[in-house]
Nucleic acid binder design. Structure first.
Lengths: 241, 241
DNA sequence: TAAATAGTGTCTGTAAGACAGTATACT
DNA sequence: AGTATACTGTCTTACAGACACTATTTA
């Protein structure tokens, strides 16, 4: 077997395939949506024509790390360069890819819904946003359904005790908008007073002037103080897991 | 490049190396310890003679999945077959292994400290338990220091709101023993009354008769109701992250 | 009886939830 | 004025922490 990059001898093991997949979440139409791409129709490819998570092989020439690879794939599909991006986990076994023993490193990204008329890669025949719950019910290529399911579960779980949903909104945003986002992600209504106390006490937002409300009272708008990482609240929203 | 396992054609990419590493925690002498192994002394190998996490290449003939590979490596080093085992994350870049672009899938395991005189693989020159805090200060092979650091951080973080430390004890155990375990892992003392209320209210323990105490009042002993997964408490022990 | 360990009771503080109320905008 | 939206206040509940107390064992 071929050696790469150094004088160290390598055991002659077969190497698994190494891929990276990205679960990209955005809020569209007051719905949590994920981006799926269509596999090539070529019957030589595995799962031809099926929906899959955006992703693919690590390119050892181009990608300096797994994270860099995920960033590259995210940018290629959405144009977004500064998302919230966290590692979800890895999957690997002998049967998930018909081409052989294969591994994937899954990431999940939260992005602001693209402006409809920006010159970002538009949704197309090969790439489309689906409501998360619809996507979960689809038959997806590889084990992507399982990965997507883990991503949605992780997101919903973290939303119970972190400020993650703020990364789905374009800044500045109002507290009612943020509450709506929590409600959409979790699929249940929340109490306004408790919600506001919690967000403001957590001290991760800074005021950013009044909105020019379309109707009704104008609201205070906010920005995230530190976009690097989400804030953890001292308790869960709803007791239990 | 060689094709494996099927008729699907593969792009001729160089494939990264694929390894699995396991961070194995046990309680020894009222101290949180991790198992490290020595790299072979052969200068042909990377990091000869240095301490590293137990792990190595995925063997596509032998391992049907990443998890199976982690289980195999854990068993080889400790003889333990039913640990608490969870995926920690994956690391991969062009420079972590001098042999080339390499990835590792890291797992972390909580096991009961091996009986000293059982016929399990004994600690040896090539394999030794170190207090977690000492191990963190060592120079380790590859990026294993970073991985170990992530494992300790994850463990300490989850201990704040889950029943994880129970997996470090041999059953049955008493509440004072469990409390001691929490204190050892977190490095701080906890209030007895609050601790007991929390554990008993969480309802993940079942009574298992009285201990024959060596001195002092005999204590109720407990077993874990469901060893499959840890229980999540409704709040953190200490507010904040 | 003293020492050691196990276990309980009571009070306080914090933050979430329920829900009713007030404030400010537009029509 | 009426409606829609933003925001506040008050009461209750859940649970962690502090700390003093009681209970049961051995020496």
């Amino acid at each position: 077997m071929k050696k790469i990059g150094s004088a160290f001898p390598l055991a002659t093991f077969d190497r698994p395939l190494v891929t990276v997949d990205v679960v990209i979440f955005a809020l569209r139409n007051d719905t949590l949506t994920v981006l799926l791409v269509r596999r090539p129709a070529d019957p030589q490819d595995p799962f031809p024509g099926q929906w899959a998570l955006p992703g693919g092989f690590v390119d050892v020439q181009q990608d300096s790390s797994l994270l860099a690879c995920a960033v590259r794939k995210l940018k290629a599909k959405t144009g977004v360069t500064t998302p919230y991006l966290e590692q979800l986990g890895s999957w690997g076994d002998e049967s998930r890819d018909p081409r052989g023993w294969s591994t994937t490193h899954a990431y999940f990204a939260l992005i602001q819904a693209p402006e409809v008329d920006a010159q970002t890669p538009a949704p197309s025949l090969e790439s489309q946003w689906f409501p998360a719950d619809d996507a979960l019910r689809k038959r997806l290529a590889f084990d992507h359904r399982q990965i997507l399911s883990a991503a949605v579960a992780r997101l919903r779980s973290k939303v119970e005790y972190t400020s993650l949903p703020a990364f789905l909104l374009r800044e500045p945003f109002t507290l009612p908008q943020l509450q709506k986002t929590y409600e959409v992600v979790l699929g249940r209504a929340m109490d306004k007073s408790a919600f506001r106390k919690r967000m403001l006490d957590a001290n991760f937002l800074e005021e950013s002037g009044m909105t020019d409300g379309v109707q009704g009272r104008v609201a205070m708008s906010y920005r995230i103080k530190d976009r690097e990482l989400p804030t953890t609240f001292p308790r869960m929203f709803k007791s239990g897991e």
